[in-house]
């Protein structure tokens, strides 16, 4: 482990925080395209922070991961989602239960909650400066769930799920060093396939029901 400048650290913290903020902002708008936009920004932040971590820890595999995030998530998945949105013609998610601004405020509250939670956790000494990563990770997870809970459209649920996944990744990145590369890649693959399959199903929902509003999918019940 070699020394690194405090500036770099604060920059890294800012980027990490930015990803959480992108997620919060994502909750605030009902436009699907903006949502996807925010999602891709959020993953971009993630990719950057992976890069920085790689620089700090001098681990080659983090660079690979960062590249993978950039190409798979930031570009690949976002494009895919844009394409779906366009094909289906979904423009706006009206939201469910909570008005969008209030949901956004709630996700700020969740950020605070995440801070409290992550303070409870022990930290490894050399990762102490990255404690904010835990906060941001948990916040992303919670925000992702909140997003899923407050949105109507199937595509928003995929977005929420992806945000959660990002949170977990961020958490893993900053709270535990040295996840094996093949595991990381495997996870990537799984997420990628999951999104692809969801995309297919969304098409099918659109095809069968002529909408993608999942609140109307309640015919299977007791």
């Amino acid at each position: 482990m070699i020394s690194f400048s405090p500036f770099m650290f604060s920059f890294l913290q800012a980027i990490i925080l930015a990803s959480a903020i992108m997620a919060i902002l994502m909750v605030g708008t009902g436009q699907i395209r903006s949502n996807i936009m925010f999602y891709s920004l959020q993953t971009l932040c993630l990719a950057l922070s992976a890069c920085f971590c790689a620089a700090i820890e001098h681990e080659l595999k983090h660079y690979i991961v960062a590249l993978a995030i950039f190409f798979v998530k930031t570009i690949g998945l976002s494009t895919f989602l844009f394409w779906i949105t366009k094909r289906i013609g979904a423009a706006k998610d009206l939201g469910l239960y909570l008005p969008l601004p209030i949901a956004m405020h709630l996700s700020v509250v969740l950020l605070v909650f995440a801070q409290i939670l992550s303070n409870q956790l022990p930290h490894l000494n050399h990762l102490q400066p990255l404690a904010i990563g835990g906060t941001a990770g948990i916040s992303l997870i919670l925000t992702g769930i909140l997003f899923m809970l407050t949105r109507r459209l199937a595509i928003s649920q995929v977005l929420g799920f992806l945000t959660m996944e990002n949170g977990i990744f961020l958490f893993a990145l900053t709270q535990s060093s040295g996840m094996p590369l093949f595991i990381e890649m495997g996870i990537f693959l799984d997420v990628f396939v999951a999104v692809m399959i969801s995309g297919l199903i969304i098409f099918k929902i659109k095809h069968s029901f002529e909408h993608i509003d999942v609140t109307l999918l309640t015919s299977l019940r007791d």
Partner: peptide
């Protein structure tokens, strides 16, 4: 108890949380 199984995916996610 059958009412818990209301059919809405949001509610199911909520249970999870």
């Amino acid at each position: 108890i059958n009412r818990l199984q209301a059919g809405s995916i949001h509610i199911y996610l909520f249970y999870l949380l």
